[in-house]
Design a protein around this nucleic acid. Structure first.
Lengths: 187, 187
DNA sequence: GTTCTTTCTTAAACTAGCTTAAGTTTTTTC
DNA sequence: GAAAAAACTTAAGCTAGTTTAAGAAAGAAC
């Protein structure tokens, strides 16, 4: 839980007692590689924080193929937000790519946390704003660059991350076929 | 300003005095069709709320063509969030498509507002979560559907909105050429 | 250390969506 | 209400990225 506490304290203040209260309302779990935190059709009950490891979010498209829309590394929050905030059926799967340690903030406990620790409103406002800002930029890249350019951009921005995932997952995230990715690498 | 007040009161409580304080920290402006609220390279100084009218956000791509990434209708917030929260150079333009009435929450005043009216943290957390949730779904559509399917989906979801904008703007938003959109309509 | 499974590569045929270019229709301006 | 500007259409040729299919390499499991 230490990563999260440190992360929160960068943005708002938390007393010892408050930290304890927070900790007691957040579960920490180990998720094995390939294990699911969420499956399509279920209701997304929690917001997940990656303490250690790597998660992916994907859906199964019309052709039955997995389409990855997001990864989550250490210190990132991940959730199917539409399902989480509306408590409706999820459209996505969330699965561990590596054995991971994940913090689980359940929906009903989050409400309680906001009541007791109002400064968390600010923390989550800032986190969501950042995520949203990142997503605006990601749309820009989607529109602006060809698949090939997007691939080269991704590799140059996150060279270490590329080592950590199989190529077919990168292809899926970039919205191209593994065959085409293979061709791009050859060039 | 009434639309915004009503909108906020759906999510948090505001006393008379608080409403007054809020109003005094938010500017209301008229923006004429084609007028800019933000241009690329400037720092995005405000978060904009559409009381009436229609805005678009776009950037100029490598080929010199305008690429629309978002529209904002009545009761929507719009901003280049990366520029707004980091106070760095904007990558986008924000421009009025129709004569509009827009509320302007400036960056430095927002800080003050959060201090005086902490319940606004909650309001903006909820708004940003919604925007982010919508953007996760939009990525899904981007990955899942062909351009043609995306066009048909958009028309079926927002038939009235389609009437309100020129076709070339819809084409731009969908990431296709106006020529191709014209072909799709014919089918 | 052999077998099974998962991941990656190569290459040829194919298609969704783009480019170019010219013409038509609609909207704006004076 | 005529002229200019902006928006839309049509069609032919083109290209980025897909599909299909088969084989090679690497990792995991026993």
């Amino acid at each position: 839980m230490q990563n999260l506490i440190t992360h929160i304290k960068k943005h708002v203040t938390l007393s010892e007692a408050e930290t304890k209260f927070l900790s007691s309302n957040i579960k920490s779990i180990h998720v094995k590689k390939k294990e699911f935190l969420l499956q399509e059709g279920n209701i997304c009950k929690a917001n997940y924080f990656v303490e250690k490891g790597l998660l992916r979010m994907f859906f199964i498209n019309e052709k039955g193929v997995e389409q990855i829309t997001q990864f989550a590394l250490e210190n990132w929050w991940l959730s199917d937000y539409m399902s989480f905030i509306m408590q409706t059926e999820a459209k996505f799967y969330i699965q561990a790519i590596e054995n991971s340690e994940v913090l689980v903030v359940e929906h009903h406990k989050q409400e309680e946390l906001f009541k007791q620790l109002p400064q968390l409103e600010k923390y989550f406002r800032i986190m969501t704003q950042r995520a949203y800002a990142a997503s605006q930029m990601r749309f820009k890249y989607f529109y602006d660059y060809s698949k090939e350019e997007n691939y080269r951009l991704f590799v140059s921005l996150f060279p270490k991350f590329v080592q950590r995932i199989p190529q077919y997952m990168l292809a899926s995230y970039l919205g191209i076929t593994p065959e085409y990715l293979s061709e791009l690498r050859k060039r």
